[in-house]
Simulated scan of single mutants.
Amino acid sequence: MQGINMHFIIDKEIYFRPADGAIWNIDAENEKRYLTLASSRLLAFFIEHRGEIISREVIFHAVWERYGLHSSNNTLNQYISLLRRTLADFGLGAHVIKTIPKTGFLFSTELTITTVQQKHSVTNSEQPRTTRQRYKALLLCFLYFLLLLVLIGLWKSRSVSTPLSDSWQPSQEAEKCNIALSEVDDGSRLLASSNKVKYMTLVDDLPVEHEPARIKHASPCTA
């Protein structure tokens, strides 16, 4: 992925990169120094508004408040002193940042400032945080869905393998109600269940002397 990396060249000799606060001399690139985040924002703001008298309130808003931070006059004075010392170490005088009494500060116009924009590759660690968070959210949703499928499968397998309860077992009382027939002819075997009941009732109503010899006994139902 490609991105834009902006550099400022101060007085043709000093490179300043606001992205990470790196500042170095053109002849000593391996000897970079790094400003703090607030110092880097402050120097970049001065460079972009050089030649203008900037009030403290405007600086507070641009460097701290717009990022959800707060500062004070004492803190601002300390950062101004730090920038002056850093620029002096690179051969620039303390007059680069001028104090305007009761008004604010002025970045000198005596220095030449050149802006250079270069394309550079952005590594995975530099990708927007929102993209990484989106991937994490999708991964969590997939894991939850997979867990749900596993739970449903376990529940179904348990339901199928669960044996019938005792209430579904054949009644022991029913086993005591037996009707024993012997020597039944082929015609009675073809009767439907309802016809068999009618046939048994008809036989019971007959007189004793007419009782068929084929029916030996019928055990009573104890239910």
Rank of each mutant, 00 (worst) to 15 (best):
G187K: 15
R56A: 08
K119S: 08
S121T: 11
L190G: 11
N77K: 12
P101K: 14
F16Q: 00
V122R: 15
L139M: 05
R84I: 03
H95A: 12
E173Y: 10
D166H: 05
I26Q: 02
E211C: 05
L146S: 15
G91R: 06
I100Y: 14
M200W: 13
T103I: 11
D205C: 05
R17A: 03
G21E: 06
S121L: 12
H70Y: 05
E126K: 14
I9Q: 02
L139H: 08
S125T: 12
S193L: 15
S81T: 10
L147F: 12
S159E: 15
Y34H: 07
D205V: 07
I14G: 02
L191H: 04
I53R: 11
R158A: 10
T115K: 10
H217Y: 10
T130V: 11
I97H: 01
T131S: 04
I10V: 13
G93R: 01
L138Y: 09
G3A: 15
Q117W: 00
L92K: 05
S125M: 11
S108E: 00
R66S: 08
E65H: 08
R50E: 06
A88W: 00
W64V: 08
L149D: 01
P101V: 10
S188A: 13
L202V: 09
R56D: 06
T222S: 13
G93H: 02
F90E: 04
E175P: 01
D186Q: 09
E173K: 15
A22V: 03
F142R: 14
R66N: 06
W155L: 14
I53Y: 04
L148F: 12
V160Q: 09
R129F: 00
G93F: 01
I4D: 08
P170A: 15
D27V: 02
A223K: 10
A218Q: 08
I23F: 02
L106H: 13
A38Q: 09
T162I: 06
E31Q: 10
R17H: 02
F90D: 03
F46M: 03
H70E: 14
N124I: 14
S108C: 06
Q133N: 06
K32F: 02
E211K: 15
A137S: 10
V184M: 11
A192T: 15
P207V: 09
A88K: 15
P207R: 14
R50A: 08
R85D: 07
S159M: 07
L37A: 10
V203S: 05
H217A: 07
K176A: 12
N77S: 13
E52Y: 09
G51Y: 07
H70P: 00
T86C: 00
E48P: 00
